[in-house]
Design a protein around this nucleic acid. Structure first.
Lengths: 332, 332
DNA sequence: CAGAGGATTGGAATCGATTCCAAAGATCTT
DNA sequence: AAGATCTTTGGAATCGATTCCAATCCTCTG
């Protein structure tokens, strides 16, 4: 029993293929009688229009692809949930793919946009060089989110990482921090921006520039621990540490606690992202919340515009507001 | 500048469309001269074969879809990483979609299999009723993973959750546990199996049946805390608690610790899944590791067989070996 | 050097759904 | 009741890549 086609449905229903197609697409130019016959035939044959044939004729797929290196982070999955919901509201399906930081895999997925497998793409953390992002975004419907490349043609949605880090550093200073340090992730764009915000805030407060430790290759719990250990080993302990992510902050807190220090009494620690881990840490982490879900929704809205109004390629970026979440790891 | 077609390439290269297509598909029946002319034309026009046209003609897409409720869990993302890698090895692209437990969304995504948007599907935790899974799996290329529905036609890859829970419970008993309790998640299939394994192990050891608390609606950190609080409130404290997931175990440990109990000295706690949180917890969690990546690879291998050998619809399920990871939250 | 056999090529048919155009049918007007 | 208008319908053309068949071009063999 091969797949039924529009021809089969037409024959079964005793009408022409044109009429079947009109029923499928909700055209009003069909009599009630025909519509019912067609629907009955569709049911009997359990017919589904073949996607590739439809896409070919219509020249669009109603699918978008969201790309990230990996998916286990709460920010990524919330952003993509936002994209997915917004897409669904507009009749699109949003698919997700993880590149694992593999350039070749990423190229292959971007090719899905070039070859019309999907109509648009949301780019979370591209591995390819900036100029490639620019080239792709110049021709195709692409919107960046969170980890945004500086590209002329590209458009992106994110928080102001620099300002958010500035604000958090300011909070550390306002609550008594004088010797600040940062555990940064320079390998990520957002990490570099957060570092810049940290440095600026320290400088603006007239404090001596704090030590900045950067995790090379990985920035997880263990990196946080290792860098905290370095901090301890270096002596001249800071009284506040700003970590580029909550996971690293959790590692940092753990290492400091194991060394007998009390957080925040002896040393304050702040994270970033308001991950699930922020609440699971002891003490619970002060952190910066990104409106991840909303960012996803906004990203899709922009993407939709690019997909449907091909001329309207807005450039630049949109910043959504971040929020300081003060918990127990810093002095309230 | 509209998209170039195979016709344009043929014209530019001064050959026929047949030859262009042969070059595109690596057919040996092309002279070196023609091949070079075609490749040159492809480069000049930056031509990409349109996916929908190709898919229509070939009657397959070389794409598979992996479905789960949500993606932030390490198990899901590792499974899907395995699927993705195995797919790439066979020239397939694997896409991911999250249903958020929304039945309508899930139906829409399953429709992508029915309408030929993808060639196969990996189902992690279906929301639809078992008989629907059965119906879909009976006709289409579907493989289940981890959260496996009992369906005649369906095929699935998982660990033996029941046995794994049995083994972990046995470990709790072997290390001195006599009054056992479980924090379970009955809303998930795997949760029910783990509960059954727990009960069996307790019974086999001749111990009194332990108290089992089940989290309704959500089974995260907070649910773990709440259920641990219930345990405390009930008095007659157990000396070992088996939690259905690491996240719940982390919540449980936190609540017990806050109540002044020492883990594992006063009460042992075990988790399940070997999530990232298992190592971040204080004390680090004893847990069960699932070979998630490998499960993804095996799932794709099975899927490939279903996609390419349509007759060979293997039923039943494959169990992959689990592993007890003993850390500090139980008495070594 | 004729002819067999192989290598290469061109081009039409095909996949299945949509859409446009012309025609047929229905309804209304006067 | 004829003509005008509106509704509904059938069917061919179309989207772009692949593939099969027949035709052409080589290269050897004897």
């Amino acid at each position: 029993m091969a797949r039924a086609t529009v021809q089969d449905v037409a024959k079964t229903a005793g009408v022409s293929v044109g009429t079947v197609s009109r029923v499928l697409n909700g055209s009003p130019a069909v009599s009630t009688a025909s519509r019912e016959k067609v629907n009955e035939a569709i049911r009997r044959l359990s017919y589904r229009p073949l996607a590739s044939a439809r896409d070919l004729r219509r020249d669009r797929t109603m699918r978008v692809l969201a790309l990230a290196k990996n998916l286990e982070s709460l920010v990524v999955s919330e952003v993509f949930r936002g994209v997915g919901d917004a897409a669904a509201d507009s009749g699109y399906v949003s698919l997700i793919a993880a590149t694992a930081g593999d350039l070749e895999r990423e190229q292959q997925l971007v090719d899905m946009l070039r070859n019309g497998s999907v109509d648009g793409m949301v780019l979370f953390s591209p591995t390819m060089p900036d100029e490639d992002v620019d080239a792709v975004a110049g021709q195709l419907s692409v919107v960046q989110v969170c980890e945004i490349v500086d590209a002329d043609a590209a458009f992106g949605v994110s928080i102001d990482d620099r300002q958010a880090a500035y604000d958090m550093t300011r909070h550390l200073i306002d609550t008594g921090g004088r010797r600040l340090a940062m555990i940064a992730h320079r390998s990520a764009r957002s990490g570099r921006l957060r570092e810049a915000g940290f440095r600026q805030a320290v400088a603006d407060a007239g404090l001596p520039p704090g030590r900045v430790l950067s995790g090379e290759g990985g920035f997880g719990f263990h990196a946080g621990r290792r860098l905290a250990r370095e901090l301890l080993a270096a002596g001249d302990l800071p009284d506040a540490v700003f970590c580029g992510t909550d996971i690293a902050a959790a590692g940092c807190v753990r290492e400091l606690t194991d060394a007998g220090l009390r957080v925040p009494h002896d040393i304050a620690v702040a994270g970033f992202d308001d991950s699930a881990q922020a609440e699971m840490c002891v003490p619970e982490l002060t952190t910066v919340r990104q409106p991840a879900y909303e960012m996803g929704r906004v990203a899709f809205a922009e993407l939709l515009e690019r997909m449907t109004v091909p001329g309207a390629h807005r450039r630049g970026r949109v910043f959504l507001p971040h929020e300081l979440v003060v918990r127990d790891s810093t002095k309230g």
